[in-house]
Each structure stands twice: as C-alpha cells, then as structure tokens.
Simulated scan of single mutants.
Amino acid sequence: MRISELSARTQVSVHRLRRYEAAGLIASQRLPNGYRDYDDKTVKHVIFIAMSREMGFSLTFIAEYLPRFKTGKLSAQDMIDAILVRVAEIDQLMTEQQALRKKLMDHIGWFKTQARRKP
C-alpha cells in the first residue's frame, strides 16, 4: 500500500509516517516509480507506535519495544509495567509542578505585602 493509504488506515499523518521510517521504526519497499510501498502488517505497527506516542513514550522507548511487539513477544504485562513507570514519572512531574506553583503563589503574596507597605 502507498503511504497515503497507510496514513488513511492508521490516522497518522504522512509526515509522521516518513519520520517513523527515517527513525527505522517502519520500513517500505520502493516501487520503480520511487513511491513507498508498505505491507499490511505495517498498519498494526504504526498503530502501536501511535498509541505509544499518545501515552507519551519517546521514540527511543518505542524503538526498544517495537521489535518485541512485531515478533509477538511483548506481553500485555510488559506494557502494563511500562505504563505504570510512565504514570510514576507523570506523578513526579505533577508533584514538582505543584511545589513550583506553591512557590510562585508565595512570591505573589510577598510582592503584594511589599506593595502595601509602600506609602
């Protein structure tokens, strides 16, 4: 299938598909006219990549997990464990952002106090 059909079947932009191919995540054959030609199983691979990106996984992470997905050796528990690690990372970021928010609000309070003291 051509790249436009792969894009339509996966709801992933042609630009992003080219990026995935440049990163070595998917592969195509070149037709004599230079067009890319993808096999049917690439649809499943692109959907895995797209879902992983939606969850915030990096292309490096995907490059590590995709070969096991392609060979059927990536278990649901492997993905659950990876997602739980991602959730923990997000929780940590939220904690840090909440602490920063508190600090910012404290600074606003300080500036308001200073403004009230000025004659």
Rank of each mutant, 00 (worst) to 15 (best):
A99R: 12
K112A: 12
D40S: 13
M105L: 14
L84A: 02
D40P: 10
R19G: 03
R30S: 13
S13D: 05
Q77P: 00
A63C: 02
A50P: 00
A27E: 10
T71Q: 12
V87P: 00
A76P: 00
H45F: 11
D78P: 05
Q77K: 12
H107W: 08
F111V: 12
L66T: 02
V12I: 09
K112Q: 15
L100A: 14
D78E: 04
L6D: 01
R86N: 14
I80E: 07
F111A: 04
M55A: 14
S4G: 15
A99W: 00
Y35V: 06
T60S: 12
V85I: 13
E89H: 08
S4V: 11
A23H: 08
R53P: 01
V12A: 12
V46I: 07
S28G: 06
T42D: 03
H107P: 00
Q92G: 11
K44M: 07
I26Q: 02
A63G: 15
L17N: 05
E5V: 14
R9L: 15
M55L: 15
T60E: 14
Q97Y: 04
I26K: 02
Y35N: 12
T10Q: 05
R68A: 15
E96F: 01
F57H: 03
K102C: 05
G34I: 03
A8M: 07
T71Y: 01
V85L: 11
R30P: 07
V46L: 04
L93R: 15
D106K: 11
R86M: 14
I62T: 05
N33G: 04
S4R: 09
L25I: 10
Q98G: 00
K44H: 10
I47E: 10
F111K: 07
M55C: 14
H45R: 09
E89R: 10
R9I: 08
S75M: 09
P67L: 06
A22N: 10
Q98W: 00
D106Y: 05
F61T: 09
V87A: 01
I49L: 04
I62C: 03
K73A: 08
F69A: 05
I108Q: 13
S7I: 10
E54Q: 15
G72Y: 05
D40V: 13
I62D: 02
R16Y: 00
E5I: 11
L31K: 13
R19E: 14
Y38N: 01
D81N: 13
I3C: 10
E96R: 11
G34S: 09
L59T: 08
Y35W: 11
P67R: 06
V43Q: 04
M94E: 12
M94C: 11
A8G: 07
F69G: 03
M51P: 00
R36F: 07
D40A: 15
R53H: 03
R101K: 13
K44F: 06
Y20H: 12
F48D: 05
D39P: 06
D91V: 03
